[in-house]
Simulated assay, not measured.
Amino acid sequence: MDEQYSEMGLDPGVEYLRDVAEGFAQLGRRVEDEGGHDPFQAITSVACERVQGAVGASITTLRYGEFLTVAATDERVRRADAIQFELGSGPCLDAIVTSTMYSPCDLRTDDRWPAYGRRVADELGLHSMLSYRMLLPSTGTVAGLNLYAEAQGAFTERDTMIGLLLATHGALVATAAFYDRHVQNLERALRSNRGIGTAMGVLMANHKVTEDQAFDLLRITSQNTNRKIVDLAHEVVQTGALDVTPHQRPLVAVSPPDSLTSRPLP
Rank of each mutant, 00 (worst) to 15 (best):
A57I: 12
I162A: 05
H127T: 14
V77Y: 08
E123V: 02
G88T: 02
V46A: 02
D122F: 01
G140Q: 10
R50C: 12
C48E: 15
A71K: 10
Q84A: 03
L87N: 02
Y148F: 14
T168C: 11
I162G: 09
G170W: 04
A143H: 11
T98I: 12
E150P: 12
D110M: 03
R158Q: 12
V46Y: 01
G90C: 01
L93Q: 08
D74S: 15
Y64Q: 14
I162H: 07
T109G: 03
A47T: 02
R108F: 00
R50E: 12
T61S: 10
T141S: 13
A72F: 07
R78Q: 14
L124D: 00
T139W: 13
G56E: 13
R133F: 14
V120H: 00
H127Q: 15
L62H: 06
T109A: 01
L145M: 05
L166G: 01
L164N: 15
L68R: 12
V173I: 11
G125L: 13
T141A: 10
L62M: 09
E123H: 00
I83H: 02
L130G: 11
E123M: 00
Y64E: 15
E75V: 12
A82P: 14
S89M: 03
P137F: 10
M161Q: 14
N146R: 07
V46L: 04
D81N: 06
G56L: 11
D94S: 13
L62Y: 07
E66L: 13
V97S: 01
R119D: 04
D94E: 14
L165W: 14
A115R: 09
L93C: 05
T44A: 14
R76L: 14
A174G: 07
A154P: 01
Y64W: 12
R63C: 09
A72P: 05
L166R: 01
P91T: 05
C92V: 15
G90H: 03
Y116M: 02
R108E: 04
L62K: 07
A82H: 08
T98G: 01
R79M: 06
L107E: 02
Q152W: 00
D110G: 02
R79T: 09
S103W: 06
P91Y: 04
R108T: 03
L62Q: 07
M101F: 10
T160L: 06
A80H: 00
V142K: 13
L87P: 01
E75K: 13
R108V: 04
S99C: 11
